[in-house]
Design a protein around this nucleic acid. Sequence first.
DNA 1: GCAGGTAGCGAAATCGTTTTCGGAAGCGCC
DNA 2: GGCGCTTCCGAAAACGATTTCGCTACCTGC
Lengths: 331, 331
Amino acid sequence: MPTSLTDIARRLELSPSTVSKALNGYRDVSSDTRELVLRAALELDYQPSSAARDLRRGRTDRIGLFLNTALEYVVDYLSGIIPGAVRCSQECGKRLLIYTLTDNDPGQLLQVCRAGEIDGVILFSTHYDSHTIEALLQDDFPFVVMGRYIPDDRVSCVVPDYYDGTRQIMDHLLAAGHRRIAFMTRPELTTANEARLQGYLDALAAAEIGWDDRLIVETRLEPDSGVAPTRQLLALTPYPSAIVAAHDLVAVDVINTLQTAGLRVPQDVAVTGFDGLRAGFRTLPHISTVQQPLERIGERVVELVNRRLNEPAAPAVQETLPVQLVLRGSA
Amino acid sequence: MPTSLTDIARRLELSPSTVSKALNGYRDVSSDTRELVLRAALELDYQPSSAARDLRRGRTDRIGLFLNTALEYVVDYLSGIIPGAVRCSQECGKRLLIYTLTDNDPGQLLQVCRAGEIDGVILFSTHYDSHTIEALLQDDFPFVVMGRYIPDDRVSCVVPDYYDGTRQIMDHLLAAGHRRIAFMTRPELTTANEARLQGYLDALAAAEIGWDDRLIVETRLEPDSGVAPTRQLLALTPYPSAIVAAHDLVAVDVINTLQTAGLRVPQDVAVTGFDGLRAGFRTLPHISTVQQPLERIGERVVELVNRRLNEPAAPAVQETLPVQLVLRGSA
DNA sequence: GCAGGTAGCGAAATCGTTTTCGGAAGCGCC
DNA sequence: GGCGCTTCCGAAAACGATTTCGCTACCTGC
């Protein structure tokens, strides 16, 4: 049992109200008393009970973010956005915390929100789930979607420019003379995947290159999920001279598979990633990728949740953030 | 404002106490009433206010874990232990959550604990801080240290067998004929680092090889921190035929630096890592490493916190978990 | 001297639960 | 009928903070 506000009150022979006011900067307490209270609080290592305070104030000043499976990917992505998100939440006087889901059950997210453990939540693209979104809207619970565009003007989201990024990649590859360019997509039918695919197709069309079904393959988010599709592409004759991977982690698999097969990257096959994760620095050559403004995304996403908390009536905003091609060797 | 217990009570013309008891499985409520309450709760999407419940019960059923800087490393390590930790906490009826620290200020950890936001905390080796530990002991707050042995019989910890792991690595390298083996250590004076160093020295002694100061270099936890030390080693003549890196992330840097310099791994220089992180699969060759039982560590660490919660008087335990050398190509 | 204002404090309600305690009703049994 | 025993429910007291409101002093200005 840590020291409570009433402990301080008793010790100083003051009322709990006065102590509370002294600690919270109310003006109707003399500076002498305030001094006394602050000193006592320090001495006793007083920290207000968050449960009591949250209950009374009806808010927690906490913002949540949920981990799910596809841990390998999520975690690498998260480590990119966390610095920005943490900095911003600190500025807003909130704390950012990350929940783990057992059994990857999205219902737990709703439980946590409804229980009032957090004031707002950041939804990661990988655990989007229309039922969850619908429920959050129903409850009028503040949330922002990160990394996926949601075609609904009631929901805020922050997304990188998938279309432009893919165009940048394709333009680079085409300019380098590549004509057989393979494309790895993700099986989910999301606006993000559609935008990337559209960028691919448009770029081919602009270069007056017909598209070949066999060059478009699917990958999942699990570890090593880039290996099989790469083998599949290598079985083609001729095999593609460039592979546009769905994201950096897949690109790692692609590069490793190619090199294991005795092919040189980028001389024999060029490879590109997407996202700009740390993983891109682990292969040799490093991965040429589309860098998302990760810190910026972290900031914006927290800022939007916070705005929504401050003015509940504020309209939802859907932001597309610019991305940038960075060439590191693999293409 | 979500539905509260009293909302249900009013709707059913029952008292809040009865509703609470119906929901919490008390026996002194008729099965008819219980049925009614459960149905109403479901219809109204009722979720008990965690603040109110925590306040009243004096516990939260939550266990915390704190992120700090050195994000790249921590996050990769975490993704290894999370599955085990989450599974175990679920079995214990707790929820595991991850706090972010602003400004990497360890004082925030104590604040969170004292505020009663969590019942127990898992301390990561990388943000060990003797003042924090002392304060937690003072407060009698349940905690367990992960990845670092603390020479104090009041604190529980779970650590991999650093000494044995290093011996396994060294024995393998020595058996392969290596005689000039470099060793990368971390600057912190921890029992973990000491154990690794001791393993290195003992192995050399057992093989009757004198040790060379210049082969022992330091690395930090920041990204790319393996590059400079590797260059430093390559400047030696002759340069070492094997490099024992402090952990897998450093090993990645080492391999990349060697390959960039035109050296082949493992033919020209063998490289080993430590920990068994996913990063070890991203290089080519993959990293030969000492695999920590990560999931197991996650489980144990949660289990120990939980035991401490259930029987506060239980003595602290210090567990060393066995590790295993896995050869993946880099040595 | 008095009205009006201000400064400083405390009483008390409140947030939404949990849990203890007691009471009412119903029943069986002597 | 009286006694005891269940069974079911509600009243009420917590948990520890915040916040409103009112009260007492004291001061100021006329």
